[in-house]
Every structure is written in C-alpha cells, then in structure tokens.
Simulated assay, not measured.
Amino acid sequence: MATPHNEAATGEIAKTVLMPGDPLRAKFLAMTYLEDAKQFNNVRNMFGYTGSYKGKEVSIMGSGMGMPSIGIYSHELYSQYGVENIIRIGTCGSFKKHVHLRDIIIVQGCCTDSNFAYQFELPGVYSAISDYGLLEKAVALAKEKNVNYHVGNILSSDIFYHADKNSPEKWASMGCLGVEMESYALFATAAYLNKRALTLLTVSDSLVSKEETTPEEREKSFTAMMEIALEIA
C-alpha cells in the first residue's frame, strides 16, 4: 500500500502519529521513548517509526518544512493509512514579550499568508483550528507537569526570510503568539478529511528579545512538549 512518499505497508502505522518537522527529531523520539520501535519509512529520508508508549501503539514521522510538505504527508496518512490523529510537535518563533524561549504554545488556531485553502474553493477565508478534545488533554497535562505554556493563535507562514521587516509586529498586533510554517495545512487537511489534529510548539527563538536555541537543542532537548504529545496519543 505504498504511496509516492511513504513505503509503509498496511497496518504498520498507528492511529495516532506524532509529527516533528525534522526527521532526525522523529528518529530521536522513537529511539528515546518507544518500545520495540520499527522503522516503516525511509523514502526521501523522511523517517517514520511505530512502537509502543506505556502500552499504546504510537507512530512518529517527520513532516518536512512548510505547508506543501506537511500537506502531502498528512493527507497520505489520513487518507491511505487510516490515521485518525496527527499531533505536530514543532518549534516556533515568539512574537510576544511574555512568550519566552522554551515555553510551549498549544495551538488553538492559525492565521496564514498561504493560499493552501484555495483548493477547497470556499467563498471566503477559512479559519484553521485544532481539535478541541486533543487541545483540552494537552492543557490538562501541561498544568499537571507545571510547564510554562500558552494557548492561542499563531501564524503559519510560507515565508521564512520575509521582505517586510514589520510583518511580525503586524501579526502580533492581531494577537498571534508566534510563527511557524506547517499547522494551517495540517488543520485544514484534517478538517477536509474529517480527522483530528493538534500542534504543540516549543519556542526556539524570540523575534522580540532575539534570543535563540541551537540546532542540537531543537532536535533533542524539547522533551516536555514531546512527553505531553506522547501522553495524549
């Protein structure tokens, strides 16, 4: 039952998939947290693994960077492999002074500068939101673990190096907590296919204070977000 981007056979992927952008983070997560992890995908080095966490079957797979990439992988997982839940576990830049490095953002909804929703031929602007059931569980676990977290809106952008240097301030003025590049496409795809999705983001850099984390930290140290996602899987 392989797709153009996934060589997994039927039954090799769990009903819930955790999706970091970086396939190396997917590998780190699988090797660190899953028992009996088995690799199901190596196409384009977009690693995917299935194993068990506290007795539950869970899959972890990279999504790549940007909405086109996560749009491909999430669509195939939902439509071809019977996946019901995708939880994106990623990083973001903070737009707000009170949203600090290593804080967690539990994404309620997304704004975007992408035309991803154009394909649905809707007579207006689509608001992409997460699944409330998954969001509610994530908030409860964040409280239980006593981590610094925020719930709210973010920007999913197609542009990393933006020509408009005032873009962050404009989105921040509308309440956006931070910026990443994938969640709008994930939420829209889930809604279109009648599935469930959530995004958890760890703040890797601040567009306010100009602080940032290292690539190694982003790959291996954002464990609080990872553990929340595994608990609600």
Rank of each mutant, 00 (worst) to 15 (best):
M225A: 15
R88P: 02
K210M: 11
F120H: 13
A26F: 09
T112H: 04
G64K: 04
L34M: 09
G11A: 10
E180F: 06
F187P: 05
F120I: 00
Y192C: 07
L101P: 03
L135G: 03
K54I: 00
A224P: 01
D22Q: 09
Y53G: 04
I13A: 09
I104M: 15
S209L: 11
V139R: 10
Y81A: 11
H75T: 07
G62C: 12
A30S: 15
P68C: 05
H150C: 08
N194A: 14
N148I: 03
T3K: 04
M67A: 12
Q119G: 14
G133W: 06
S59P: 02
G62T: 03
N115E: 13
N45R: 15
S204Y: 03
H100R: 14
G124P: 05
D36G: 11
D113A: 04
V17I: 05
I105Y: 01
A185Y: 05
C111D: 12
C176H: 04
A9T: 06
E84H: 07
G64C: 09
D22Y: 11
R218P: 00
N45T: 04
T91H: 08
M67E: 08
T16W: 01
P215K: 08
Y184S: 12
L141I: 09
T223V: 02
D103T: 02
T213L: 15
K56C: 09
E76Y: 05
H5C: 10
V83F: 01
P68G: 07
R88T: 02
S63G: 15
S221L: 14
F95D: 05
M31T: 09
A30E: 05
N41Q: 10
S114A: 08
H75L: 08
D36A: 15
T3G: 08
C92V: 02
T214M: 06
F28I: 01
V179Q: 05
D103E: 08
S74Q: 06
A188P: 06
A188C: 12
A9D: 13
N166H: 15
H5T: 00
F95S: 04
M61D: 07
E7M: 14
G133P: 00
M31R: 08
K143P: 08
Y81V: 00
E169R: 14
T32G: 12
N194F: 07
N148S: 15
K143I: 03
F28K: 03
C111V: 03
V139M: 11
V208C: 07
V17S: 06
L186R: 06
A138F: 08
N146I: 06
A117I: 00
M1V: 13
I232V: 07
L18S: 03
I228C: 09
R102E: 12
N85H: 13
L101K: 10
K143D: 13
L207D: 06
T223P: 02
S173L: 10
I87T: 02
G71E: 06
Q108G: 13
A128I: 00
Y49H: 05
P23L: 11
G64L: 09
E169M: 13
T10V: 14
V151E: 09
I159S: 11
K56H: 12
E211A: 09
M31V: 00
Y53T: 00
R196V: 01
I104A: 10
